[in-house]
Design a protein around this nucleic acid. Structure first.
Lengths: 346, 346
DNA sequence: CTGTTAGCGCATTCAT
DNA sequence: ATGAATGCGCTAACAG
């Protein structure tokens, strides 16, 4: 087999076909103004040599790269991979490629990825910022010559369009639901208390609890099964144990459920469970888990569409800087009310 | 706010700082052989202008793009997003960016994505091919000047390194386990019967069934809950209903479980259930689901490492074209044997 | 330590 | 219908 060392160039094709580079260029870009005969011949050579145009050269000519960047905290997290899928669909409909990178919620890593994307001259960037209060990020964005849209989390200190979920209201409504059904000691469980979404949800929880004159009980030590189990144990053995748990994100909900199950706590009789963010099998578990359902695909799609809007006419700056999407409270069995109902988020 | 129309260039920085382009270039690339004074000044200008080097120009100079491509059937599928995460970690350790695209198992879309990646001059490509018998793909790859590694599925008709799971053996072992525990009418349930992995798993199923002198019962109509439910109904109402179900992939396992639960079929008493591919909450469902567990992270990591191996010294062609990874049979409760055991795949 | 310059691969005038 | 020449932003080779 022939050793393939380097990419063939336009010139290689031209020489091989006995024509000028212009002609080959024309063939690549639609084949107009080229005689059928040369067209065929050049195409054959392209095929034979396995020629593919070098995008870099085109970019250098100032053309669109037809590429957008997407930075999320984690690729493996269903929430973000579902977003990504939605984004990719939109990108594809705009004949664009999506480059995806994971920040792991680390501002430094995020900055690195941002720089890489900018160097690659992506036409635009979608970002779920690791730290919504980052000064470095705000500074970078102020000078950024390409459009950026943040989603899931905003960016403070700079005018960037963002697409968000009504975290606070949704959390408030969910907790209120527990209160309405007689729960009095409601524990709020989660992790990563510095994240925007978590902060907002806790705020919503507080509003509901304080509005009802109850006691706030927030534990942000839970990030996996181990921590969930130990947290549940501790709170159960308190003199005045909770009668409900509100979990702040899907992984925490799952782990808490597992922990409760392992400790033989009856759900919802002894302990109601209501989680933020829906997840696969939530309806299949016994009892089925009640959740606040986020419009994940919507989130990705809306953000991507907003980005492409700004791409096509760069000057047309939307007035509306912030888009907030509505959630739904999905009542199944774990929260202890009669199931079947479904409440649209405020 | 200043209108930001276009990316500043090296020349812009050089002029602004009153130095030559080479000096700026040196500053960007580590700042060696530059006086501390100029270094500071140039850095300040770079900062102020928000300059980011144009990757395209570097690529044109023939440098590595420090980018690898990854094409998977679906981003939202946990299996592949977990792979992707593993790949990205390896890429990162090689100071490279990962570009990810989804083919939806459509050979045409896959080909498009491949072309885009090649045009972008990614240093290498990782691919889970949609159609392992594709002639077009084989033709493209024969001429491809950059290394490609296939994973999860091989590519027929061309010498491409691939990293695979021992699908057939694992399926055979799993079905054998059901047989060993007295199951006699074992239904094999799944979808997309043209996919390599599915073909292999069905083959393993057949080997085990035929080896035991039993009857093969394969239904490849199941791709979601609806189809799972109707398939289960049909087979349950047959004159001689199955006493066990072997599901061919994780989504099918989940849907089949849901269907069985909905129809009040007792697992494992009336029906044993054993699935290919583990999934979140498989151990939390009641009964906990027994599965063949694939080394997903391993798959992604190994494939990526193989790719980078070929990248660093392009000539050092490994003899071993095919790497096969081992699975584990995780016995939980749904298959009806006493749980707790764990058998390493053959 | 610093500046000048050629050339990477391609699209695009402008001739022919 | 076709080709020769130019320049996009950057790096590296070569002066100074």
């Amino acid at each position: 087999m022939r050793k393939k060392r380097t990419h063939p160039t336009l010139l290689d094709v031209a020489r091989e076909a006995g024509v000028g580079t212009t002609t080959v260029s024309r063939v690549i870009n639609g084949g107009h103004r080229v005689s059928l005969q040369t067209l065929e011949r050049v195409r054959a050579v392209i095929e034979r040599l396995g020629y593919h145009p070098n995008q870099a050269a085109r970019i250098l000519k100032g053309e669109r790269t037809k590429t957008i960047g997407l930075i999320v905290p984690s690729i493996a997290d269903v929430f973000y991979s579902s977003c990504a899928e939605a984004v990719q669909k939109v990108a594809r409909s705009h004949d664009s490629l999506m480059i995806m990178a994971a920040s792991g919620n680390d501002p430094r890593l995020e900055m690195e990825h941002l720089n890489v994307l900018i160097r690659h001259r992506t036409d635009g960037i979608l970002l779920a910022p690791a730290d919504f209060r980052s000064q470095d990020l705000a500074t970078l964005l102020r000078l950024l010559p390409i459009p950026l849209v943040s989603f899931d989390r905003p960016i403070r200190g700079v005018e960037i369009p963002s697409v968000l979920i009504n975290n606070r209201e949704a959390a408030r409504g969910a907790v209120q639901h527990l209160i309405d059904h007689g729960r009095r000691r409601i524990l709020c469980l989660g992790g990563e208390p510095a994240l925007y979404t978590i902060i907002e949800r806790i705020r919503g929880y507080r509003e509901a609890i304080e509005g009802a004159g109850l006691l706030c009980l927030v534990d942000t030590s839970v990030i996996d099964f181990k921590t969930a189990e130990s947290a549940v144990k501790i709170h159960l053995s308190s003199p005045n144990p909770p009668d409900a748990i509100f979990t702040l994100k899907n992984l925490v909900t799952m782990c808490t459920f597992e922990a409760l199950q392992k400790l033989n706590v009856r759900i919802p009789e002894s302990m109601a469970l209501l989680g933020f963010d829906d997840f696969e099998l939530a309806a299949t578990l016994r009892p089925a888990i009640s959740v606040v359902q986020q419009p994940i695909e919507d989130l990705g799609r809306t953000a991507a569409e907003l980005l492409f809007d700004r791409l096509v006419d760069g000057k047309n700056r939307e007035k509306r800087r912030r888009t907030t999407l509505e959630t739904r409270l999905i009542l199944r069995s774990s929260c202890g009310c009669s199931p079947g109902a479904e409440i649209t988020g405020s």
